[in-house]
Amino acid sequence: MSDISIGRLRGGYCVYWTKANGKRTRYQLQARTRTEAEAEAIDVYRRENRDAVLGDTISELWEAYRTDLGDKPTAKTMGYTGKAVLAHFGPYRPDQIDKALCRSYASKRIAEGKSVGTVWTELGHLQSTMNFARDVNIIDRAPRIWRPVKPETDKRILNAGEARALIDGAHDPHIRLALILLLGTAARVSAILDLKWDRVDFERGSINLRIDDGTSRKGRAIVPMSRGVRAALSVAHSAALSDYVIEYAGHPIKSMRTGFKAAVERAGLGRVTIHELRHTAAVTMLSAGVPLVKVGQMLGHTNTSVTYRTYARYLPEQMQDAADILDFSSKKRSI
């Protein structure tokens, strides 16, 4: 969209901009204050340039959304997913997107060897872009972006022995501490690497995984310390060289992939991803009978339905009483 400017006219305010043909146009506003004028100016511009607003392409809206995200991780991710999405959708306008166009994109990506999960994520970013354009009044309605059904992934869940072997396989103290925290708090790796000592409360025995700068769109929790977590944190705190809990030579670390991979190899666990430690923690709690709502709170979920949708398939034992009632074959027939 063209830039608009606010000016003074006949004792009030006006909005003006330069059209594509180089001609400047100006409109008198009803507003009596600068703040009111800025809001009214946007409405006037969009009213007078309806075709231009609708002409905003997916490429333009995508970049506008990334700019709005700022330093959030999603902005960086969309820099990668956008290469494929914009090659297909880029020249289109929002009102031109339909199910057939989305399905053709999915078919093309899968034919290129991409997983259904990857396609699901890419089209999800397109939906987020459309929602953004609607929320900031660039478009009146966000088109519904068709996506293939998100596949169920087979998560590797470590048993207690495997979890201990993994921790013991970490030779570097900062990697060992990170693994203890990941398994002991059910937190995401980003939350652990972001954690500072001012959010570790030894007196109350709690860890605040939340951050207030809005850089993470994922939910984070305030969790209690277990005895093992408290002991590991106490040792690390006495030797701390920086504000960060996970540090190396006095500096925070951006990634622990190398250290994690080495620990997995030493433990002989085969294929394990670092995010599966969060799943391991969640399933371990549920298997021990911890109520779903408490598990959701530990995971930082704002809605229990998210917890249920993710982990319900790991809870067949919770339906045992229902199955027992349906055991007609072993029941005596009443006369």
Score class of each variant (00 low, 15 high):
residue 88 H to Y: 02
residue 4 I to D: 03
residue 84 A to T: 02
residue 278 R to V: 12
residue 110 I to F: 06
residue 224 P to N: 04
residue 9 L to R: 14
residue 56 D to G: 12
residue 124 G to E: 11
residue 266 R to F: 10
residue 308 Y to V: 12
residue 94 P to F: 00
residue 201 D to N: 11
residue 279 H to N: 07
residue 182 L to Q: 07
residue 158 L to M: 05
residue 218 K to I: 08
residue 21 N to Y: 15
residue 107 S to L: 11
residue 175 I to A: 12
residue 160 A to V: 15
residue 197 W to T: 02
residue 179 L to I: 05
residue 185 T to H: 05
residue 257 R to M: 11
residue 6 I to M: 05
residue 188 R to L: 11
residue 46 R to W: 11
residue 306 V to T: 15
residue 264 V to P: 00
residue 200 V to S: 00
residue 8 R to K: 15
residue 160 A to N: 13
residue 77 T to A: 08
residue 266 R to G: 10
residue 193 L to G: 08
residue 219 G to A: 13
residue 188 R to C: 09
residue 102 C to P: 10
residue 271 R to T: 15
residue 73 P to T: 02
residue 283 V to H: 01
residue 128 S to T: 10
residue 166 L to F: 12
residue 305 S to A: 12
residue 264 V to K: 02
residue 32 R to T: 15
residue 206 S to T: 14
residue 181 L to C: 06
residue 171 H to Q: 10
residue 307 T to Y: 05
residue 204 R to E: 06
residue 258 T to K: 09
residue 105 Y to N: 01
residue 157 I to R: 12
residue 240 A to R: 15
residue 20 A to Q: 06
residue 39 A to E: 06
residue 102 C to H: 09
residue 134 R to D: 01
residue 61 L to N: 15
residue 195 L to V: 13
residue 306 V to A: 07
residue 112 E to I: 04
residue 300 G to A: 09
residue 63 E to T: 02
residue 308 Y to M: 14
residue 211 I to F: 12
residue 188 R to E: 09
residue 296 G to Q: 02
residue 66 R to I: 06
residue 174 H to I: 04
residue 157 I to G: 11
residue 12 G to R: 11
residue 21 N to E: 14
residue 167 I to L: 04
residue 335 I to Q: 10
residue 76 K to R: 14
residue 132 F to S: 03
residue 74 T to V: 13
residue 215 T to G: 01
residue 42 I to F: 11
residue 283 V to R: 00
residue 301 H to K: 04
residue 284 T to A: 14
residue 205 G to F: 04
residue 104 S to D: 15
residue 220 R to V: 01
residue 23 K to R: 14
residue 83 K to E: 10
residue 186 A to V: 08
residue 45 Y to R: 01
residue 50 R to N: 03
residue 118 T to I: 04
residue 323 A to G: 05
residue 6 I to G: 08
residue 20 A to C: 00
residue 193 L to I: 14
residue 274 I to Y: 01
residue 16 Y to R: 03
residue 291 P to Y: 11
residue 282 A to I: 06
residue 23 K to W: 10
residue 33 T to S: 08
residue 287 S to I: 00
residue 184 G to K: 01
residue 44 V to M: 07
residue 193 L to S: 07
residue 276 E to W: 14
residue 6 I to R: 02
residue 299 L to K: 03
residue 266 R to D: 12
residue 136 V to F: 13
residue 166 L to D: 08
residue 156 R to Q: 09
residue 181 L to N: 01
residue 282 A to R: 05
residue 220 R to N: 04
residue 137 N to Y: 14
residue 248 Y to D: 05
residue 317 E to W: 15
residue 247 E to V: 11
residue 158 L to A: 01
residue 227 R to Q: 15
residue 129 T to M: 07
residue 143 P to Q: 02
residue 295 V to N: 07
residue 82 G to P: 05
residue 311 Y to E: 09
residue 314 Y to H: 07
residue 61 L to P: 15
residue 197 W to M: 01
residue 103 R to S: 03
residue 84 A to G: 01
residue 55 G to I: 00
residue 28 Q to E: 14
residue 176 R to V: 03
residue 213 D to H: 11
